[in-house]
Design a protein around this nucleic acid. Sequence first.
RNA 1: GGCUGAAUGGCAGAGUGGUUAUGCAGCGGUUUGCAAAACCGUGUACCUCGGUUCAAUUCCGGGUUCAGCCUCCA
Length: 463
Amino acid sequence: MLKIYNTLSRQKEIFKPIEPDKVSMYVCGMTVYDLCHVGHARVMVIFDMIARHLRHSDFDVNYVRNITDIDDKIIKRANENNESITELTERFIEAMNQDSEALGVIPPDMEPKATLHMDQIIDMISTLIEKKHAYVGSNNDVYFDISSYDQYGKLSGKNIDELQAGERVEVQEEKDDPLDFVLWKAAKADEPSWPSPWGDGRPGWHIECSAMSTHCLGNHFDIHGGGQDLQFPHHENEIAQSQCATGETFANVWVHNGFVRIDEEKMSKSLGNFFTVREVLKEYQAEVIRFFILSSHYRSPLNYSTDNLDEAKSALSRLYTALRDATVDNDVEPLKKYVDEFNRAMDDDFNSPKAISILHELARESNRITDKSSKQATELAATLKFLAGVLGLLQDDPQAFLQGKANASDNELDEVAIQKLIDERNQAKTEKNYAKADEIRDQLVATGITLEDTPQGTIWRRN
RNA sequence: GGCUGAAUGGCAGAGUGGUUAUGCAGCGGUUUGCAAAACCGUGUACCUCGGUUCAAUUCCGGGUUCAGCCUCCA
């Protein structure tokens, strides 16, 4: 029985899909004006893990993650770069796809873009105006009237009376109430715009998600997710707009992942304390980053540090070593005992750290069996690989992972050179010239290569 | 100021009203020419003060500290 923590109720709830065996999930994706950082990676990996587990649990999942390809920051950046908005956004969509693929993220079923859903956006705004939930300001901007929606603040736990706007941000004169938010922005000179009943302009940020999610999944769907920082005002506003426009419940379950932190502080663009995914990929294998993300619970803060990434690498190497030393046959049926335990962990609000601890148990059990071709050994190995697959882990060739490049350092040896030195060392060993053998091994260690002498011969790995 | 959420062994990180998380590191052993990998053994951890209870790290209340939201942000 799957339980998910719902931000709306602030507790874990038993998950009941609207339609039996089907799950509709919408996640707020990226605004494509810059490279993805580790915080974005966390959203991609966490919701990928959630989608994988839902599918593993035999749900028919429709996973939608949008792309915001028009907004203030995009316009600003395109102007700075002297390029068109489309050039800019296409470049960063491509970059995002590369990062996402590296991290083992299965592409969402749909990736709607704001600029391709203007009709839906305009329709929704029109409906809101008709229903008196929105009004056209004197500057031709269209605003949502929050006083027309009495549930406003429910998701974020805000009290409208206490939300004294204007404390930290300038109040716009055109609004009836400082807390009203913009649905449609009238175009200024030299800004990209689309025609609308209220004049040329572009959508406000919040409306695109309401329009695209209901368009792709229907007015009422199962799960809506995103980073914790979107809870207010973005998701609060989405609920207000959508429910007022459709008259139906919007999303049943709200899932928010925690932040990535650096030195006990949120990683963010505005603080400038972020690492891009590709920066980190220069130093660590992508699967190490994925493992690092999944090694803490999705709602907890995730502390980014090289120590923690190194530890993730050690732990993942241990799992891959077990798989390398085992006989893996994908046709072998996974062991029910472990599958059940794993499912129980994942069904408890996607407890991936607990799930990973079960992978370690499997690795230990597998390692202690000496006869790798025994039924029990092959079953343990098959179970390990199968369950890790639900988390999107351990699907690489173990040797490829263990010998994979940690980083592109200059003094790195190629495989042929390594093998040549290993052969020389083995020659020295048969001659019982251990001084020479050790010298060669030390030489390899100095370049980051560790040797393992096994009954089947000498094998190597990169540190 | 309002509202959230945290505080677990050297570190990371789950969990639980009374019994082993897990990984990394450490220590002892097995194995090895020596290593590496692996295996076995090894750690009286639950911020603080009250309360409930036969029993609390786990529930309740106060406090302290930290993070986040209240403005764009994943």
